[in-house]
Design a protein around this nucleic acid. Sequence first.
DNA 1: CAATCAACCTGGGTGC
DNA 2: TGCACCCAGGTTGATT
Length: 280
Amino acid sequence: MPELPEVETIKRDIEKHLIGHKITDVWYDWAKGLQPDPETFIKQVKGKTFKDISRWAKLFIFYVDSVPLVVHLKLTGRLLYRNQTDPKDQFTHVVLKLDRGKELRFTDLRKFGWLRVLKDEGGLDELLSEFGIEPFTSDFTLEKFTAIIKSKAIKIKPLLMDQHLIAGVGNIYSDEALWCAQIHPETPANKLSSDQVIKLYECIQKVLKEGIEDRGTSVDEYLDLFGRPGKHESNLQVFRKNGQACPRCGTTIRKIRVGSRGTHYCPNCQVKSANSCNYR
DNA sequence: CAATCAACCTGGGTGC
DNA sequence: TGCACCCAGGTTGATT
């Protein structure tokens, strides 16, 4: 499942390899994936050139000439940079044929992802205004983070995953950040101590940074632009480690459901009130 | 405002 | 072997 580190990894590969390519043709077999509709999409991108790429939360923002093109991979989407002669990839639903014999394939087992052309800059501003503070920007200050946490009575894990509040954190990295900060995932956000908020603020950036350094986490479907898995799975501390020993204290990691999401935590290190487990 | 749940999808796993 | 069922989780939207 691509979250911020996975999207960032692909974005950096795109910067190096895809920019400058011209889109010569578009193939698709799944109309709902091309927005607002396939006809508009093709008309807007065909014959144009990839000029720029950025990332916001889990979104890719391309510019094909001056047209903003936004891509969301959701749970099982991939962007693959291939030679036109390469063997077919399973679950390919959109192909942007490029010059110099290359193509960009969008594959998606579950067809949740999408590619969308926007009318103009205004459309992009409107889309991005929906998102909360973005880690690794100057917007992500301890003050703003604290204000968000203190204003909500919801459980801390769903808060971290709410894109309208914090942008880019999903199921994997929220579990990892809460383990790092030794906070129980069901703690009401506004009940966290100031020390816990600071710790969590640091841990979010730490786990995302480590994820990027490892080129992402390949549990399930994630692969990079060249179809290679990330290396961060071996550095996960709790995610999908239920039944195994907590790397910090040895207690068996437990899996529960929080807000209908599978959630992994250490019942000894991560307690709802002040905890007794010494860090490292 | 917070919590829950269905919907969007389909492969993989389990149990009978 | 076949079949019914459940699970995975990003996001939206409806309902309690």
